[in-house]
Design a protein around this nucleic acid. Sequence first.
DNA 1: AACTTTTTTTAGTCTACCCTAAAAATATTT
DNA 2: AAATATTTTTAGGGTAGACTAAAAAAAGTT
Lengths: 217, 217
Amino acid sequence: MTPNKEDFIKAIHELGGQDTVVTNKELVRSLSISAASVTEMNNRLLKEELITHLPYQGVQLTEKGLLIANQLIRKHRIWEVFLAEKLGYDWNEVHADADLLEHASSDFLIERLNIFLGEPTFDPHGGVIPNKDGTIPEIHSTPLIECQTGDRFKIKEVDDQEDFLEYLLYKKVKLGKEYTISDIEPYDGPFTLEALNGERTLIGHKAAFKILVELLN
Amino acid sequence: MTPNKEDFIKAIHELGGQDTVVTNKELVRSLSISAASVTEMNNRLLKEELITHLPYQGVQLTEKGLLIANQLIRKHRIWEVFLAEKLGYDWNEVHADADLLEHASSDFLIERLNIFLGEPTFDPHGGVIPNKDGTIPEIHSTPLIECQTGDRFKIKEVDDQEDFLEYLLYKKVKLGKEYTISDIEPYDGPFTLEALNGERTLIGHKAAFKILVELLN
DNA sequence: AACTTTTTTTAGTCTACCCTAAAAATATTT
DNA sequence: AAATATTTTTAGGGTAGACTAAAAAAAGTT
Ligand SMILES: [Mn+2]
Ligand SMILES: [Mn+2]
Ligand SMILES: [Mn+2]
Ligand SMILES: [Mn+2]
């Protein structure tokens, strides 16, 4: 395994390669490499039986590939917790450094770090940390977009795009924070959220897809 | 800069390349790569003016090369402090993981980590941590081999070879621990050290070269 | 001084990534 | 159905880093 292969497998996973076919074009976009390089890497991973490949259609992770993806995500997210909680990174700052560290971490290191951090279940933006054996803890949460006016909820997870996290930082949206939906404008208009202290926040329609919540009674 | 180049420069530094010429053979031994690969890497570093090269004699670090070496050593040693103090690694366990992490650390990360660790001056075996600007704090310590019977001293630094550290762990020699030399056997015989609690430890002649101490009045 | 051994360099290969340009296959329009 | 556009693959190259085998240079021995 090399850092490039690991990141490539992770990209397939992020694009849904656990259950659906991921096209070369999506990988080109996601990894910012040429189409030819994607074909090449596909062939390498195919030889190692980490993916299956339907020519001109795309790739999918095998069991073996999925395990590698989940173990890498585990490393990534444990590092993110460290950077945020111990080194005081904001949640939009953790990604780049975790993306490097994940490839430079022995299993021994990750298990020690995990214990040092108190065996966290979630990363700083609510992503669940896969178990050591590659299995994923079951989590139940609802996209904000599916909620109704009047619903009360708690923020559970947010999309980890750097610019989106920055936007949420500015909007003061944090994991665990509770809101009530006081209004949803029609025609894909914004959500108006009211926090416990009465503070009101406008959240755009598209952003409501990227926020997962837990409905409270 | 790549991980391989960084480690190569660090190896030159460890072999004395700051002031003396380091031969290819020494680098072959130290990095476990072929002589041809050493010649190749020399040429690459030469082109970047990180080393000077006398054909068939060896290489030496330039100012530029020395700065890179010291900054890498800073990263390495700060990680070692983290692994030892926060993750509970024994001092003979820190090296391999720090050797990977040092190449996957942004300057931002290292400065945050440094602050988190309380801006340490020394790594777990007493190696001084270079400053951010690549300068080295001045340290005054004496090799144990130069001490006399009757001398009282404190352990300041030990060689960081993994097997030597394991030996010291077994001998219960730790940084900061105080001893008196109760005997030095002639003909390169062992040193007998007596700790404050009366406990006696035999230290081989060769080991006495690898232990640096601070003499106490 | 001549021979032998050691060390360094050169020459030729290999793998992992990356690229561009062209060809082939598939999808979309007209 | 044909033409056009998009996507994927192939062909051909490039760099970093590693190797072995052979040639060249330096050092050590007799
Ligand atoms: Mn990564
Ligand atoms: Mn993340
Ligand atoms: Mn290293
Ligand atoms: Mn060290």
